[in-house]
């Protein structure tokens, strides 16, 4: 190897190309995208039974209302643990390859979203029972989209955008945009699904109730999207190696 400061290989274009090649190689070696997606998929699937078990049901003469308390009990700690696990995995894998990790801003964003969700959910649970939005009438679509955006699955998507930026990962960016479209605009609403009720014991209501299936399909769809992407990123990584 030459130690001269100027040589035939020091053409400025060649040097810049070398820098780009080396830095993109480092970024590829630092990535552990599939682990992040698989952890988030696991957390999403694990939320489903919590949703059922911690659902509160209030019935009166006009019918029954369901409150998903499991959202508050499960998601904030689950998200914090998930982002901690993802950060530790990234750091360990990068260190094993002889590199530092650039996952910290993602983990911090994820942790902040967990706190934002908990605060928003608590505020909504305290305010809306006595002040129903839009006078208790039908909700506009933008409201439903906003509601989904600050739900755990929407916040997972926002944090994934940060990860895609950190990793300069175009494939992850495209997936995340598709995921957000699916989650915000396509995923069925509670009213769209006419699935039968299912008798399950609810810890909060203290009795076996006919609880609606309707909120489960969207969680299954979101979990399946994350799981599929995780497997795809894992296979792509193996083929690159």
């Amino acid at each position: 190897m030459t130690t001269d400061s100027l040589s035939a290989g020091d053409d400025p274009r060649r040097l810049l190309l070398d820098i780009r090649t080396l830095t993109s190689r480092v970024r590829r070696d630092q990535r552990l995208t599939y682990v992040a997606l698989l952890v988030l998929a696991a957390v999403t699937f694990a939320a489903i039974p919590f949703d059922w078990l911690f659902m509160t049901v209030h019935c009166d003469g006009s019918g029954c209302t369901f409150a998903r308390r499991g959202m508050l009990y499960y998601w904030p700690p689950a998200l914090l643990l998930a982002y901690a696990a993802i950060a530790v995995s990234y750091v360990r894998a990068a260190r094993a390859r002889g590199l530092g990790a650039r996952v910290l801003p993602y983990a911090i964003t994820g942790a902040v979203t967990a706190v934002v969700f908990a605060a928003a959910y608590t505020a909504a649970a305290a305010y809306f029972p006595t002040h129903p939005p839009f006078g208790g009438g039908p909700l506009p679509f933008w409201w439903i989209v906003l509601d989904r955006l600050i739900a755990p699955w929407g916040l997972i998507g926002l944090a994934l955008l940060v990860l895609a930026r950190l990793e300069r990962n175009v494939a992850l960016l495209l997936f995340t945009l598709g995921y957000l479209v699916l989650m915000l605009l396509v995923s069925p609403t509670t009213d769209d699904t006419n699935l039968p009720g299912w008798a399950v014991p609810s810890f909060m209501s203290g009795a076996s109730m006919q609880l609606p299936w309707s909120m489960t399909p969207s969680q299954l769809i979101i979990g399946a999207a994350l799981l599929t992407a995780g497997i795809a990123f894992s296979r792509a990584r193996r083929s690159q190696q």
Binding site: T2, S5, G9, D18, G98, G100
Partner: peptide, 28 residues
Amino acid sequence: VVHQRIRLGILAIAHEARRVEFGYLRTH
């Protein structure tokens, strides 16, 4: 000091990686 292909490569990798191990630099 910097305008040398290898040293520029070391700086570029170290910048992107935050910190880099000797073996990684030697290999790449």
